[in-house]
């Protein structure tokens, strides 16, 4: 028996060690960026445009650009994603076609981001003649975000007790009335959480915006949806790889701002989830 116990102890130590090897770098990475980036963060940094070939000044246009792209992505992906999920959960019958739809959702989620970039370029920028623009970039990011929103909405809808629907139908409500009054209102928390999460991922993506919207240096803010725009992830990429003699503190600060934005959105999503869990009445 003692050898079995001994083996168990050894095994658990190895597992713990593996976990440590995973967890330590995560913490160190975050600390590393915060430590080195925090010093360069200032009000000017966040509110001014870059100067001196990106080596000085601030990253304001990139921050604005990312926020614009987030909003644009939400505008396109949210309605389409929610409606698709409603179809899958409330209307679709259990047949091959439905299975095809579900398979397509899975596939969309596995397509590499650069392939989305290619697709966005050829469809939105060229074919639909939108040019490299906020519109093209947002549309590309939206298609990329669809699977996450669809999945989150689907789970939220399925979590609503079936009895609500049964009650509604038995009183003579139509399917849409049932969804609108007895299902959707209770799925909104889950949908919201999933949406914020999906948008936080879109905010950090570089590949899809490389050819569809990202501008290298655009100190003025965009005037229409057909304009290009700077974006935080692209900016970080450019200053890390293509600007010689780049002061490291600015690069770290840019990475810091990007991470802070993404983490803030994640935090909002987590807080939303906790808040609605408390308010649940069933």
């Amino acid at each position: 028996m003692s050898t079995a116990r001994g083996r168990e102890k050894a095994a658990f130590i190895i597992l713990g060690f593996a976990t440590l090897l995973v967890v330590l770098p995560i913490i160190l990475t975050i600390v590393y960026i915060i430590k080195n980036g925090f010093s360069a963060i200032s009000w000017e940094f966040i509110t001014q445009s870059p100067r001196n070939g990106m080596r000085g000044g601030g990253i304001f246009p990139a921050i604005v650009g990312t926020i614009i792209l987030i909003i644009g992505t939400m505008v396109f992906s949210l309605p389409l994603g929610i409606l698709s999920a409603i179809y899958l959960v409330e209307y679709a019958r259990d047949n091959t076609f439905t299975r095809l739809i579900k398979l397509s959702v899975v596939n969309l989620s596995g397509i590499p981001s650069i392939v989305y970039g290619l697709f966005g370029f050829t469809l939105f920028v060229l074919f639909l003649r939108l040019g490299t623009s906020i519109l093209a970039g947002a549309l590309t990011l939206s298609i990329m975000s669809l699977p996450v929103i669809i999945t989150a909405t689907k789970e939220a809808l399925e979590a609503v007790p079936y009895s609500f629907r049964e009650i509604s139908f038995s009183l003579g409500a139509t399917r849409w009335q049932t969804i609108r009054y007895c299902v959707l209102p209770y799925a909104i928390p889950g949908i919201l959480t999933g949406t914020v999460l999906s948008l936080s991922r879109a905010a950090g993506e570089t590949a899809p915006i490389l050819f569809t919207v990202a501008a290298f240096y655009l100190p003025r803010l965009p005037r229409s949806v057909f304009d290009q725009v700077m974006a935080l992830p692209y900016h970080l990429y450019v200053i890390s790889t293509q600007v010689p003699n780049m002061p490291a503190s600015i690069s770290f600060a840019t990475a810091f701002v990007l991470i802070a934005l993404v983490f803030l959105m994640n935090l909002v999503s987590i807080l939303l989830r906790a808040h609605y869990r408390k308010k649940k009445q069933w």
């Binding site: 609500f164 009650i167 139908f169 038995s170 009183l171 209770y186 069933w282």
Partner: peptide, 15 residues
């Protein structure tokens, strides 16, 4: 269903 109301076995109310 407007003509035929139904009462289920376990009381089911909307929240």
């Amino acid at each position: 269903r407007k003509k035929t109301g139904i009462i289920f076995a376990l009381p089911q109310v909307l929240p």
